[in-house]
Design a protein around this nucleic acid. Structure first.
Lengths: 151, 151
DNA sequence: ATGTTTTCCTATCGATGAAGTAGGAAATAC
DNA sequence: GTATTTCCTACTTCATCGATAGGAAAACAT
């Protein structure tokens, strides 16, 4: 089962922006360095986040990106769908589930129902968590790291 | 998000075998025709189902395949994992979530946690349904189809 | 025994899509 | 006007997946 790098980068970038909430806009270059993402590729991801209305951008010197919504209003499913398009459990290319006559098989439609269930549960799982939740987790982790360092 | 044709074919084939429960072994060719799957490709799928201990095979004339377990003991997750390997949300190639220094980023591990949750929920969804359940659905659908035909 | 059927195994091909790269236009700040 | 940064389109490269092929191994039939 595959997820795209875009999805992963998208969440990391959005989280980066969420943590920098309220400050000056963050530039793609900065995020790319912090998160270890190729800059030129990250630009694509950010563009799609913007088209989905999740981030705002400002061009020119001192430009950059910021969240367009409060972090608590952005669910991970929103981010994923913004960069990957609608979650569809597709198969590499062709339409299938048809028998020799070109009609879909009985089994084909049953299996389709299964994929639909999976899709729903993936979406529910992703939408249970918001960027604000991830921010909280990030701060907790960071706090632990500092404590470790002190010992 | 992608699923493999193998997974789909695997479920369709297993369901085919489940519906033919108790009869003579079914040949790959027969399943392939009924379900619209390339025979040579289906052979691979069936081989993997056998390696996983889900089906039994008999070679030679009048050979074929049958389920190795009762349909109620085979969950869809078992079938999928048999043909696709362990469900892992992987990305096309490289290791990621590392920053310029080669250490994983904080965000990388948080995102990993998200993928883990998704994986669990996919598996739970798949394992909620057994081949016996699909058989029941198939028979219901078939019954409806017959009724429609009568009108 | 010999031929026939069917599974079994390994190797390979071709197409699709995904990750990443590149060039330059548009917009903003100073 | 120059530097900066986003924005858009196009291209390149490469992994993976679906599919095919050839033939070995096993079981059966006559």
């Amino acid at each position: 089962m595959h997820i795209s790098a875009k999805g992963e980068y998208g969440i990391m970038a959005a989280l980066d922006l969420a943590l920098a909430n309220g400050t000056a806009p963050i530039q793609a270059k900065t995020i790319a360095e912090r998160q270890g993402i190729p800059v030129r590729f990250l630009e694509h991801v950010l563009r799609e986040l913007r088209h989905a209305g999740l981030v705002q951008s400002a061009r020119g010197a001192h430009g950059g990106y910021r969240l367009a919504l409060p972090a608590s209003k952005i669910r991970l499913g929103d981010v994923i769908q913004a960069v990957e398009g609608p979650i569809a459990l597709t198969i590499h290319g062709a339409p299938r589930g048809r028998n020799g006559n070109g009609r879909h098989t009985l089994h084909g439609s049953l299996v389709q129902g299964v994929w639909d269930e999976v899709k729903v549960s993936v979406l529910e799982t992703l939408n249970r968590t918001t960027l604000a939740d991830l921010c909280r987790q990030a701060r907790d982790l960071e706090e632990q790291r500092v404590l470790m360092y002190h010992i």
